[in-house]
Design a binder for these strands. Structure first.
Lengths: 234, 234
DNA sequence: AAGATTAGTTAACGGTGTAAACTGTTAACA
DNA sequence: TGTTAACAGTTTACACCGTTAACTAATCTT
């Protein structure tokens, strides 16, 4: 697997394109990245980029995958800062890392969780596994905690049943999760809440409060964990 | 306030522009709307539109305001289907209407809650009041229910304090709300959860479940209301 | 009827993504 | 080692975009 000189150069250029694209996104917004802009900043002409990406969309897809990986890495790091048995602490750490990452990489965040770029539709077979690297950390954690009997399902969730829940259970099973459907829902909607709060914050929908929102975010996650008795006291 | 013939025509054209823009958004995505496209579909040339909007951004702003109003109207209708004292039922109805509206108007939804269109920045003085027409329905409802003693704040939220909460209380007061800061947080984060779940669904982040998620959404709102004892049983 | 206002036009500028044809350099192989 | 193929880059061109300026023709005002 020795790389020739040309292959090395090619790879370097490939990475440079992406990093310049990242920079331009950071400065001008996610959808505003232009091939010409990237090219001239690199001292190239726009069509040259077509040696590396078949289209602008393909470049965007590469950026999305990078973003997913960057997020997943950030969550992993946070996940590893606490002992495995400290489920509450780990969940909290991951959640805080999620927001932190989003605030530090707003363009990447909107690339993943914002509305799809017009005309562009990400190929599922690429993005779904990439997304899973992040999602699974929450799910896996809850799954482990459940199996060790550390989670009590809150009374307001008892007795849920419908075709959706059988489907949920089936889906969980197919991923090697031994977790009741109700807890799956709690996980998914908790995930939705985290994403929602961060999304609202990033889109400025909390601006009118004119105050840093960290405390609310933190306390809401804690409340969520208390409900599952993964945290007993603050 | 009699309209001349010219004024009537002008108003009609103004509305037609917006409705054609809506149509194009529906078919090609929110950011892909082009003045030229709109104009030719109307049998006009692009520069003609500048008689009605000073720029593309101004058109987008008008569309955003329309979207906000459309959403607020939908929520109002749902709000009115239940008796005023049926706080749980009303909250549930509004929440379901929110998702319904989003599913029926995905492009309007992403206009409001998606990532901002590149280069475009919405003028706050216009969008903030428009947004308030929707948000306030949730907040007002919780405020009323609280004043009538229908809400119990869940134990996991007790004892929260920091500069954020004094700010929250101050903010609530300035809007004529007599609601404790903790409940404000519960309202805001509940709002975040609703927006988050709908956002994830619309962006296809639940697609891998391969099942309609109505039940999950419904049950999650119910659980939320049970926690506040706004609903006793399902 | 005359003058002002207005809705529309055409032409043009600088920007975009992308395709095609072409040039020089690098790598592979007889 | 000399020939050939692959490759990275170029220039040129096309069809689109938002926007401005100059102009025409219709409408309203007086």
């Amino acid at each position: 697997m020795v790389q020739t000189r040309r292959e090395r150069l090619r790879e370097a250029t490939y990475e440079e394109i992406k990093s310049v694209a990242q920079k331009q996104m950071r400065e001008q917004g996610a959808v505003a990245l232009s091939l010409r802009g990237i090219a001239t900043e690199m001292g190239l002409t726009a069509p040259a980029l077509y040696r590396y990406f078949n289209s602008r969309d393909e470049l965007v897809t590469a950026l999305i995958v990078d973003a997913y990986n960057s997020l997943a890495d950030a969550l992993s790091v946070a996940n590893a800062t606490k002992a495995h048995e400290d489920y509450g602490g780990r969940f909290l750490a991951i959640s805080l890392a999620f927001r932190q990452w989003a605030l530090e990489h707003p363009q990447d965040f909107s690339l993943i969780y914002g509305n799809p770029i017009p005309g562009y539709h990400a190929p599922e077979e690429i993005t779904t596994p990439a997304a899973w690297r992040s999602n699974s950390q929450f799910l896996q954690l809850l799954n482990d905690a459940w199996r060790e009997g550390k989670i009590t399902i809150p009374p307001e969730y008892t007795g849920l049943a419908s075709s959706f829940y059988t489907r949920l259970e089936e889906w969980a099973g197919s991923r090697g999760l031994t977790i009741p459907a109700t807890l799956m829902q709690i996980a998914l909607t908790g995930w939705g809440q985290i994403q929602g709060m961060v999304s609202l914050e990033l889109n400025g929908q909390f601006d009118y409060l004119e105050h840093d929102i960290s405390d609310m975010y933190y306390n809401e996650i804690v409340a969520y964990l208390k409900r599952l008795s993964l945290i007993i006291e603050t």
